[in-house]
């Protein structure tokens, strides 16, 4: 394991509508919810191995604060990167991501704050196809559609993930860490090239 700086810490906040899968995404990332669904995610500090080096991530979930703006502001303070979630089966959550969450994080943390757009519950698509419910499957938010949107929003990356099966979960946090490193030129060389010691 490469050496890490205790104070070069990336604070990632996961935002999105209620019940769109934030908590499960986080719990599945920290390997907690294997075979079991937890109701809440406790903020935690984890080491994340980027291959060449290890970065300390501080993960936060805004679940339970969806209705409390003042409380969210406290969570947003000093955030380094955001993961904006929507539910692929609910179109309105994508709308909220565009019109509620994105402007909110930008107004609180600056226009240039890096963020990743994530479509949760991607396994639903497969399930609907398997059950011959193609018509319903068409109602889901399509990947192409969101890719265009993500480019327009200025998202660092876009993923569709399934926390239930652990698909793309790691990539989401890898991308958000890299998005943060991009903004920190002073650290970028250290971490990506493994020069840091």
């Amino acid at each position: 394991m490469a050496a890490r700086s205790p104070f070069a810490r990336c604070k990632i906040v996961v935002v999105g509508d209620q019940f769109c899968g934030k908590t499960l995404l986080l719990n599945s990332f920290v390997n907690k919810g294997k075979g079991h669904e937890f109701a809440i995610f406790e903020s935690c500090v984890v080491d994340f191995d980027l291959g060449s080096s290890t970065i300390t991530l501080s993960l936060h979930d805004i679940s339970g604060q969806e209705d409390y703006e003042s409380m969210r502001n406290l969570t947003y303070a000093d955030a380094d990167a955001f993961v904006v979630c929507y539910d692929v089966s609910k179109r309105e959550t994508l709308k909220n991501a565009e019109f509620k969450w994105l402007p909110e994080i930008r107004s609180k943390c600056g226009e240039d704050i890096p963020f990743i757009l994530v479509g949760c519950k991607a396994d639903l698509r497969q399930i609907l196809h398997n059950n011959d419910l193609h018509k319903k499957a068409l109602d889901l938010v399509s990947i192409k559609e969101v890719e265009r949107l993500a480019a327009r929003f200025g998202a660092y990356a876009f993923f569709e993930c399934s926390a239930k099966y652990g698909r793309n979960v790691r990539q989401v946090f890898e991308a958000s860490t890299k998005a943060w490193l991009d903004t920190r030129e002073d650290l970028y060389a250290y971490f990506t090239e493994g020069l840091y010691c």
């Binding site: 109701a39 809440i40 500090v45 936060h60 339970g64 406290l74 969570t75 000093d78």
Partner: peptide
Amino acid sequence: RRWSIQECILAVTHRITKYPLLIEA
């Protein structure tokens, strides 16, 4: 657990917002 003061402070306020989630569950 490598928490800093800031994370501790945040965790305290987070806790109260988690009670409704737990009770609902």
